[in-house]
Amino acid sequence: MPETILELQNLKTHFPIYKGVLLRREIGKVKAVDGVSLKIKQGEVLGLVGESGCGKSTLARTVMQLVHTTEGTVELEGRNLTTSSPSEMLEIRRDLQMIFQDPYASLNPRSTVFATLAEPLLVHKVCTKKEVHARVGELMETVGLAPRFMQKYPHEFSGGQRQRIAIARALALRPKVVLADEPVSALDVSIQAQILNLLAELVKKMGLSLIFIAHDLSVVKHISDRVAVMYLGKIVELGTAEQVIENPVHPYTKALVSAIPTANPDEERDRQRIVLPGDPPSPINPPSGCSFHPRCPHATDQCSITVPVLETFAEREVSCIRKAEI
C-alpha cells in the first residue's frame, strides 16, 4: 500500500476585497478555496476538474505556497508548508514543482533552454557547474527534445515543444509531487496527445505523484487514477476516475459529464443533455446552503438551508444531501 505523500486539511484561501483609499476597509472576501481536504498517495494521479473560477488553480497555487493560506494545513511528507520558514520552503520546493497552463507565458523569453533548465540545478546545488551541461542534456532527452536545441530561445519552439521544456524544468530536481495546471488546454489535439503520453510515461517511470488540473473531463479521465470535482471552492465529488465520470452521483458532476461533446454523431443526436442554467455564482457571495442549489435541477427548499458535507456514498465521497434520492 503506497503511503500518503501530500495531505491537505481543511485548506482555505480567501482574498480580501478593499474599498476606499484613505478609509481603507475590508468589504468582503473572495472565497476561492473554501475548506478542501485531500490526500495524495505516492505514484498517484489525481485529476482536479471544475469550471473556470471554481478555485482549482488557486488550490494549486496554495499548495505551492505561491499565495497565502488563510486557514488549514498542507503537509508534504509530514512537513507543514503553511508554517515553514523561507529557507525551509526552499528545501521543500525541491520535492514540489508546478507546470503552468500557458507555455508561451511561463518561460522566460530571454533565457535559452539551457539557462532555464540549469537554473534550478545550480540554485539547489544538485550538481557542479561542470556536470550541468550533461544533466540538462539528459533532462531534454527525458521529455523528448534533442539536446542540440539547448542554446535556442523559447520563441524558436512550437507550443508543444515549449510545454516539454516547462515539464523538463519541473522535473529537473526530481520532485516527488508535480502540480500541472491545465498543461494541455492551450495545445492542439494532436500535440495534446503527445504531451499526455509524456506525462503518463514520466509518472510511471519516476514514481511521481501528479495533480492534474483541467476542465476537459475526457482528458482527466484518461490520465487520472482518482478525480476530484470542484465547485465554488469546495470539492463536491471525489472517487476513482471510472466511478466519477462514468457513473456520477452529484448533480453538478452529472451536468459536467453530459456537457462534454462526444465524437459520435449517432450518440450525440439521441442524447439528452443536462444544460445548466446561468453561470457559476460569484465566490464573494456564495449562495446559502449548498452552493450549487440555484443551478441544480434537483434542488429542494432544504438545499438552500443545509450545507452539505463530503460523505462516503456508493464507493466515493459526495457532498449532496439528496444523493440517495436522485
Partner: peptide, 15 residues
C-alpha cells in the same frame, strides 16, 4: 488522438 475515443490507461495515439 481524441482521449475519449480510447480505452483508459493505454498510450494515446499521436501524430
Amino acid at each position: 488522438s481524441i482521449p475519449s475515443m480510447q480505452p483508459k490507461g493505454t498510450e494515446l495515439y499521436t501524430i
